[in-house]
Amino acid sequence: MHQSHAPYRLRWWLALLLLLPVLAQAQDPLPSWKDGPSRTAIEAFVAAVTTEGGKDFVPPAERIAVFDNDGTLWSEQPMYFEVLFSMDEVRRLAPQHPEWKEQQPFKAVLEGDQKALAESGMEGLMKIIAATHSGMSTEDFIGQTRGWLAKAVHPRSKKPYTEMVFQPMLELLAYLRANGFRTYIVSGGEVAFMRAFAEEVYGIPPEQVIGTTFESQFQDKDGKLSIQRLPKLAHNDDGPGKPVSIDAIIGRRPIFAFGNSDGDLQMLQWTMAGSGKRFAGLVHHTDAQREWAYDRDSKVGRLDKALEAAKSGNWTVVDMAQEWSRVYPFEQN
Rank of each mutant, 00 (worst) to 15 (best):
A234I: 00
F141V: 04
I129Q: 09
T51N: 04
V153T: 12
G211F: 02
T212I: 10
A178S: 12
M272E: 14
M87A: 06
F193A: 02
H133P: 08
R9V: 14
I255W: 08
K221Y: 03
R326P: 12
A178Y: 00
A321Q: 13
E111F: 08
T138D: 11
K107M: 11
P105D: 10
V244F: 12
S120Q: 03
G71T: 08
V317P: 14
K158Y: 11
Q96N: 13
G36E: 01
D237P: 01
G36V: 00
A131Y: 02
R11M: 09
S187A: 04
H2E: 15
L14V: 06
M320T: 10
F106Y: 15
A44H: 06
I210E: 01
A41W: 03
A65G: 01
E123K: 12
P7A: 14
A24Y: 07
G276I: 00
G211A: 02
D35V: 09
F81Q: 11
I210M: 00
E119H: 07
G301S: 03
A48N: 13
W324H: 12
L125N: 02
R92T: 04
D247W: 03
V46Q: 05
T145K: 08
T213K: 13
E199A: 13
M79L: 12
R296A: 15
G143D: 11
L93G: 06
L23A: 13
M1I: 02
D319M: 06
E331S: 07
T51P: 06
L19T: 01
N236R: 04
G313H: 03
I185F: 00
F330C: 08
W74V: 04
A15F: 09
P168M: 02
K151L: 05
P59V: 03
A196H: 11
L303S: 08
M122A: 14
S75V: 07
Q114L: 13
I128G: 01
D287Y: 09
A234Q: 10
M164N: 15
L23D: 00
T132H: 07
